[in-house]
Amino acid sequence: MLRTSQRRFREEFMLDKNGIAKRIAKEIKDGYYVNLGIGIPTLVANYIPETMDVVLQSENGLLGMGPFPFEGEEDPDLINAGKQTITMLPGSATFDSAMSFGMIRARKVNLTILGAMEVSQNGDIANWKIPGKMVKGMGGAMDLVASAENIIVAMQHVNKAGESKLLPQCTLPLTGVHCVKKIVTELGVFDVLPGGGFKLLERAPGVSVNDIIKATAGELIVEGEILEISI
C-alpha cells in the first residue's frame, strides 16, 4: 500500500533533491556559519541568497568555501570534506583539523545540515553504518551531531524498500542522540519536538497530510491547517 502510494507521488509531486535543498536554504539566516554535509546538503549552497552574509565551513579545515573552480583551475591542495575540488571566497581562513572540530564543538558553527538513514522521534540520528555491509566510517558526523546547536536533516522520507525513515526508534547503529531539530524530506518539513514526536510544519506541493501520515512510522503530530511548502 505504502509502496504504491509512494511511487505515485514520487512521479508526480514531491520535492526533488534540489527542492529539498531550496527549502532548507530558507532556514539559513544572515550572519550564519554553516556546515553542509555530503549529498543533498551540498546543494543547499546553490540556494543561499546572494544578499545574505553566510560563511560555509568545511570540516577538513576551511571557512569561506566557494563554488567549484573553473575548468583548468582546480587546485589539488584545495578540497572540501567530500574531497571535491573547490575555491575559497575573499575573507576565507584555513586551519587544521583539530581547530576545525574545536569550532564545531564550541558551537561557533550556527547550523549543520546533513543526510540520514534514519531519524527517531526523540531526535536520534543513524547515518553511518548498516550491519552486514562494508562500513566506511562516521567521518565527522558524530562530532557534528554531538555538538551542533542546530541540526537539520535532509533525506528521503522512505528508504528504497519503501520503509519510513522517520521512526519511533532508530534500528541502525546511532550516530548521535537527541540532536536533530528539523527534517526536510520530499514530502514535507518536520520539527522534532523536545519532548518527542515529529511535528508536521509544511507539506510538499501535491502531497496530502494523509500521504505523510502513511509514510511516517514515528509519532506524527498534525495541528491545524498544514500549508504547502513555498520555495
Binding site: F68, P69, F70, E74, I79, Q84
Partner: peptide
C-alpha cells in the same frame, strides 16, 4: 597530488 573528486564549473 592526485585529485580524488575533480569538480568544476563551466565559464
Amino acid at each position: 597530488k592526485r585529485i580524488e573528486q575533480r569538480t568544476v564549473r563551466k565559464k
